[in-house]
Design a protein around this nucleic acid. Structure first.
Length: 536
RNA sequence: GGGCCGCUAGCUCAGUAGGUAGAGCAACGCCCUUUUAAGGCGUGGGUCACAGGUCCGAAUCCUGUGCGGCUCACCA
C-alpha cells in the first residue's frame, strides 16, 4: 500500500480531504455530539394546514443534504418527516372552493376537514400528497409519519402521561419566557371533543393514571377518556415536539429562525426534552426564502404562495438543489424568476465545468464547487458533463423553433443520450421561463408565410434582396466577409445601417429590435431566413 | 426587552477549520470594418461599518460601539 500511517492521515486532512461544505460540517457535528451509532435519525416536519411553500421546502432539503452527508460518511440514517396533521383547522384559506362548508369545520383537526378541491380524502391529505408526489423529483425520499394517525392509535399515550406527571416542571419552563404566566387550570394536553370533534374543550381532571375528564364548551357535555385508547387527545405544539424527539430518538432536526429565538419553541423544546428522558437533537437555524421577479404575474395579496412545483417549472431539479446546496442555510436568499435565472444557470454550468475539470480554478474553490455539484445531483453523479450551451443561446434556439424542443436540439449536433435527456429537461424549463417570466423584450417569434408583409420602398426591397444573397452563402464565407456583406446590403442601397437593421428585425420577427443580427441569422439557419426574405 | 443575522467594488453579492481580497452587472478601453438588447478580450475600482484585543499574520477569532433587518415573548 502506498498510503498509511498517522502522518499520511494528518497530511490528507490538511490537504482539503475534509469537506468544508455546511452539510458535511453538520454531519461531523452530529457524529461528534451523538457519538458513533448504528443508526442516526434525522427529522423534519411541518403542519399541512395550507399549501406547503418553498420556504417549507428549505427545511426538508436542508435535512436531506445532511442525511446525504452522513450517508456519504458510511452512516446508516433514518430520515423521517412528520406531518402534523392533527393540528387544528384555524381559518379557511383564501382561494379554496366552498369556503362556507369549510367554515363549519373550524376548530376540528385538519385531517377531518374535507378537501373541497377534490384531490384527496381530506384537506390535510391533499396538501401532503402534493408534496409527497413531487419530492422524489428532486431526489428526496423519506419516511412519512402521520401525527393524527399516531395520536389516535394511542402510540403517544406514554408521552401524554409523562406530560401530565411532569406538569409543573413543564409549566415552569414555559412560564420562563411568557409575558403572562399560564393559568392555574392549565393542562399540558389538549382534547378534541368526541361530540363535536372540535378542540373547544376544557380539561377538568386527571386521575393520576390514564383517565382524563373534560367538558365540551359548546354542548356542556362531560366525558372521561382513557389516554391509552382515546383518539381525541394530543399534546400542544411546544410539548409535542420534544416528546417526538424522545420517542423517535431524533439526532438532528433544523428549524426556522422563528423557532430558534430564545423563548421560541425550539428553545423551550430543548429544555423540555429532558422531561421526556432524552437530549435535544443537533440543530441549526435556517433563514427564510423570498421570491424575486414574479411581479405582475400574481398579486402578492392574493395569498398565492410559491411552491416547489412552481420553482421546478423554471429550474431543473439539479439547479433547484443547487440553489439550496450552494447557500448556507442561515442566510436568506431570493429565488428569482426574472433575468437572474440566466445567471443561475450560468453559475451552475460553471460549477459543473469545475467538477469535470474543464475550467481551471484554485484547489480550495475546486473542492467547494465539487461538493456542491455532487450534492446538487438528484441521483448518481453523471459520468460526463452536460452538453453546455449558454442559456441565452438555448432561449434563442427555442424561440426560433417556437418551443419545439426536439427540433431545436437537432440543430446542435452530436450529443450523448444522457446529455440530450438533460438538455431536454433544461429546455422545458427555459421555454416555461421565456413564455411566462422573461421580459417582453426578450421574446420574439419568426414571421411565417401567413404573417402580413412589411411595406417596403424600392431601396429597402433591393437591400433585403442583397441581404438574401449574403445569407445564401453565409455558411461558406468567413466572418469578416459575412459582416461586411450585412453592412454593404444597406450601404450599397443607400440605407442607413441602423434603419436597415430595424427593418430586418421587422421582417424577421415583427419587432424593432432583436438579437445581434449576424449571429442571429446564422443561428436561424439559411433555410429559415431565406424563406422569410424571399417573400420580398 | 431578549435572541439571531447582516454591514466586503457604483449595484447585487461570493469569500469564516486565519495565510497576498473575488464574481456578475455597471463603468472604461480594445476587437469582430459602428451596440443593432443579449459577442470576444482587457482595464480601473474596496481603510472588508467603526474601535480595541489575540496572533508572525485577521474580512475571517474575541470584546465593545453604530446602523439595518428578522424573530420571540399568543397559537402552531
Amino acid at each position: 500500500m502506498k498510503y498509511g500511517g498517522p502522518f499520511t492521515i494528518i497530511y490528507a486532512m490538511s490537504q482539503q480531504n475534509v469537506s468544508t461544505h455546511w452539510a458535511d460540517i453538520y454531519a461531523d457535528k452530529i457524529i461528534r455530539e451523538k457519538g458513533e451509532k448504528e443508526l442516526y435519525t434525522c427529522a423534519s416536519g411541518i403542519t399541512p394546514s395550507g399549501t406547503v411553500h418553498i420556504g417549507n421546502f428549505r427545511e426538508i432539503i436542508s435535512v436531506e443534504l445532511v442525511v446525504r452527508a452522513l450517508r456519504d460518511k458510511g452512516k446508516n440514517v433514518r430520515f423521517i418527516y412528520s406531518w402534523d396533521d392533527y393540528d387544528v383547522f384555524r381559518k379557511v384559506p383564501k382561494n379554496m372552493p366552498n369556503p362556507e362548508l369549510l367554515a363549519t369545520y373550524l376548530r376540528k383537526p385538519i385531517t377531518l376537514v374535507p378537501d373541497t378541491t377534490g384531490r384527496a380524502e381530506n384537506y390535510a391529505r391533499a396538501n401532503e400528497v402534493d408534496v409527497e408526489r413531487i419530492l422524489p423529483t428532486v431526489g428526496i425520499e423519506c419516511e412519512y409519519l402521520y401525527q393524527a394517525e399516531r395520536y389516535r392509535s394511542g402510540m403517544y399515550c406514554e408521552g401524554m402521561r409523562t406530560a401530565l406527571e411532569k406538569k409543573e416542571e413543564i409549566r415552569a419552563i414555559l412560564d420562563e419566557f411568557r409575558t403572562e404566566d399560564l393559568d392555574d387550570d392549565w393542562w399540558p394536553i389538549a382534547v378534541f371533543s368526541s361530540f363535536t370533534d372540535k378542540d373547544t374543550t376544557t380539561i377538568l381532571d386527571w386521575d393520576g393514571e390514564w383517565a382524563v375528564t373534560y367538558r365540551d364548551d359548546e354542548t356542556g357535555q362531560i366525558e372521561t377518556i382513557d389516554l391509552r385508547h382515546t383518539p381525541y387527545a394530543k399534546l400542544p405544539w411546544r410539548l409535542d415536539w420534544p416528546m417526538r424527539w424522545a420517542f423517535e430518538g431524533v439526532d438532528f432536526e433544523p428549524a426556522g429562525k422563528d423557532h430558534h429565538s430564545e423563548g421560541g419553541s425550539f428553545d423551550t423544546s430543548r429544555k423540555m426534552v429532558r422531561v421526556f428522558g432524552a437530549e435535544a437533537p443537533v440543530s441549526f437555524q435556517y433563514d427564510f426564502i423570498s421570491i424575486k421577479g414574479r411581479g405582475g404575474k400574481i398579486s402578492s395579496s392574493s395569498g398565492e404562495v410559491i411552491s416547489l412545483y412552481e420553482v421546478l417549472e423554471v429550474y431543473t431539479p439539479e439547479i433547484t438543489r443547487y440553489l439550496f446546496a450552494g447557500t448556507r442555510p442561515n442566510s436568506e436568499f431570493a429565488i428569482s424568476f426574472d433575468l437572474d435565472v440566466l445567471k443561475i444557470y450560468e453559475d451552475y454550468d460553471t460549477c459543473e465545468r469545475i467538477y469535470f475539470g474543464l475550467q481551471e480554478v484554485n484547489e480550495k474553490r475546486r473542492a467547494k464547487e465539487k461538493r456542491i455539484y455532487e450534492l446538487s445531483q438528484v441521483g448518481e453523479v453523471p459520468t460526463e458533463a452536460s452538453f453546455q450551451i449558454p442559456f441565452r443561446h438555448l432561449c434563442n434556439l427555442l424561440q426560433l423553433h417556437e418551443g419545439d424542443i426536439e427540433r431545436a436540439l437537432d440543430t446542435l449536433g452530436e450529443m450523448s443520450e444522457s446529455q440530450r435527456e438533460r438538455l431536454t429537461v433544461r429546455s422545458r424549463c427555459a421555454w416555461n421561463w421565456i413564455t411566462t417570466f422573461s421580459p417582453e423584450d426578450f421574446r420574439y417569434r419568426l414571421m411565417r408565410a401567413d404573417d402580413p408583409l412589411v411595406e417596403l420602398n424600392d431601396e429597402e426591397r433591393s437591400a433585403v434582396q442583397a441581404l438574401a444573397r449574403v445569407v445564401e452563402v453565409m455558411d461558406e464565407i468567413d466572418d469578416g466577409e459575412y459582416t461586411t456583406g450585412l453592412y454593404d446590403a444597406a450601404k450599397l442601397n443607400g440605407l442607413d445601417t441602423g434603419d436597415f437593421f430595424k427593418l430586418v428585425y421587422r421582417i424577421m420577427i415583427g419587432k424593432e429590435r432583436g438579437p445581434k443580427l449576424g449571429p442571429f441569422l446564422k443561428t436561424c439557419g439559411k433555410e429559415k431566413v431565406l424563406s422569410i426574405l424571399t417573400r420580398y
